[in-house]
Design a protein around this nucleic acid. Structure first.
Lengths: 124, 124
DNA sequence: GCATAATATTCCGACATCCGAATGTGGTTG
DNA sequence: CAACCACATTCGGATGTCGGAATATTATGC
């Protein structure tokens, strides 16, 4: 494949989109928006995140056109743009479940290399 | 807020998996393995990547259990473990297509001047 | 207009990822 | 075993990402 072919550009953009999924907080946000729009404040409360940090993550999802937002009064409501995003999310989660079932992976390489903790939430 | 709840750990691992998709070269690899196993050397030739770099990316996919590998003679063959990975790949590519159609986010602007902070990953 | 609430953006130090070069490892061939 | 081949791993510097604090923006109520 040529280095700067249109195909290569497509993979770059695809990766650019996927980077939005490559962070636990943003996955949590997507999962929270699964059943409809949510106001930023409510999300922050429920997720136990700082306002600034949540807003930054929402900004990333917004820049990549994965969520849309509208003002309503003094609040801003975010929602998922495309339901296929949820389907992709769920597919990857299924893959993850099977990976975890196959071998004892959790106690192996993962925990060693990722010390980052997270606020809790939600249904699995 | 329990920062180490099982739910949070799940999102962390989900993100850890997604990071494998968050790079154009690894997406290209996944696409190349779509129709069956491939030897490392063939992949390197076809993609025009350095041996070292390809091997590092394969190592990441392998560590996350997204591909499996087997020796055969002096070659090593890689393949996708779970077809749902391909489905997720395709879903996200569809979402990308529509995103690009909605706003004219790409056309002409991707290569010359970046409207939103699109990352330039040097060379593919 | 002023004060306040809700959200966004900027700045910056800490940490993670990327890639090439060099080096290591295991299998094959003579 | 020695020389190669196919591939993996390590090292290091450049570059990118993260999150908190501070600051800016946009509405609402008075």
């Amino acid at each position: 494949m040529e280095r700067d072919s249109p195909a290569a550009a497509y993979y770059e953009m695809h990766a650019y989109l996927c980077k939005a999924l490559a962070h636990p907080v943003r996955l949590l946000i997507i999962d929270q928006l699964r059943d409809g729009p949510q106001a930023v404040g409510d999300l922050a409360d429920r997720m136990g995140l700082s306002q600034s940090n949540l807003s930054q993550h929402l900004g990333i999802l917004r820049a990549k056109r994965l969520v849309s937002h509208r003002r309503e009064g003094s609040n801003v409501y975010y929602q998922i743009r495309d339901p296929r995003l949820i389907r992709a999310f769920d597919l990857l989660r299924e893959v993850l479940r099977d990976v975890l079932r196959e071998d004892d992976w959790l106690v192996g390489s993962f925990q060693a290399s990722t010390p980052a903790p997270l606020p809790s939430l939600g249904r699995l």
